[in-house]
């Protein structure tokens, strides 16, 4: 049993068939990087993994439990799935530390000081101890995104989903966010990462999954994918990058 399993997943937006029979297994401790042209369904796949989008056919399982089952206890399952968004989505009415403590106190019933101690640890880990009491609009994009990572980690997730988390950042701020993700990968976090950062994909990824037109078209280790892709779609995609 893999940690996260996509089993013949089909997803439609109205008439548009955006995920076509997608199968993908993410093993524990693995960093799985999903790449592909825009509109290929990679973000949608990620959003289905914690049911921000419903699927129409197939099944998605986390540690053997169905996420896509209509009767699934989705609020409980989502606690095990951390998600970081392209647009940060920090809560603007709460300080950095309050962003991190909100869900642990409201969802897990952690005591205030306990949650705060944990939040301080996490903010320290992403290098933002000094900004704990700042509001999101007082932080740079890179800082906001690092708070968002700390916020997701505060629920002690078993897998982290990263949805193009550096795409909205100024180029000079991309590095600090990727660095935090790199550290997280080194610590053994299971990660499913949608990104356009090929350097990161190559260096940190254990697997490169190429999506095109709603399908997984290649699934290779990075040294294979970036040196000698197995499929024509892979070769085509790489040639456009260069």
């Amino acid at each position: 049993m893999s940690l996260l399993e996509f089993d013949e997943v089909d997803k439609y937006f109205g008439e548009t068939h955006v995920l076509k029979d997608v199968g993908l297994n993410v093993e524990e401790g693995e960093v799985c990087v999903i790449i592909g042209p825009s509109g290929s369904g990679k973000s949608t796949l990620l959003r289905c993994a914690n049911r921000l989008e419903e699927i129409q056919d197939g099944e998605i399982r986390l540690e053997g439990t169905s996420i896509s089952d209509p009767d699934a206890d989705i609020n409980r399952l989502r606690q095990r799935i951390g998600m970081v968004f392209q647009s940060f989505n920090l809560f603007p009415h709460k300080t950095a530390v309050e962003n991190v403590t909100l869900a642990p106190t409201k969802v897990k019933g952690l005591k205030g000081d306990e949650a705060e101690r944990r939040a301080d640890e996490l903010l320290d880990r992403v290098g933002l101890s000094a900004q704990a009491d700042s509001y999101p609009n007082q932080l740079s994009g890179g800082q906001q995104q690092r708070v968002a990572i700390a916020r997701a980690l505060a629920m002690d997730p078993h897998v982290m989903l990263f949805d193009e988390v550096t795409s909205a950042l100024d180029p000079e701020l991309v590095g600090e966010v990727l660095e935090v993700m790199h550290d997280l990968a080194d610590e053994g976090m299971t990660m499913l990462v949608v990104t356009h950062e090929m350097g990161f994909a190559r260096e940190v990824g254990d697997r490169i999954v190429l999506m095109a037109d709603g399908r997984v078209v290649e699934d290779s280790p990075p040294e294979v994918f970036f040196e000698d892709p197995r499929t024509d779609r892979g070769k085509q995609f790489l040639s456009k990058l260069l």
């Binding site: 921000l52 609020n75 409980r76 989502r78 799935i81 998600m83 968004f85 989505n89 969802v107 629920m155």
Partner: peptide
């Protein structure tokens, strides 16, 4: 979405 993804109802 951010709130729900953290397990909030």
């Amino acid at each position: 979405e951010a709130a729900r993804s953290l397990g909030m109802s």
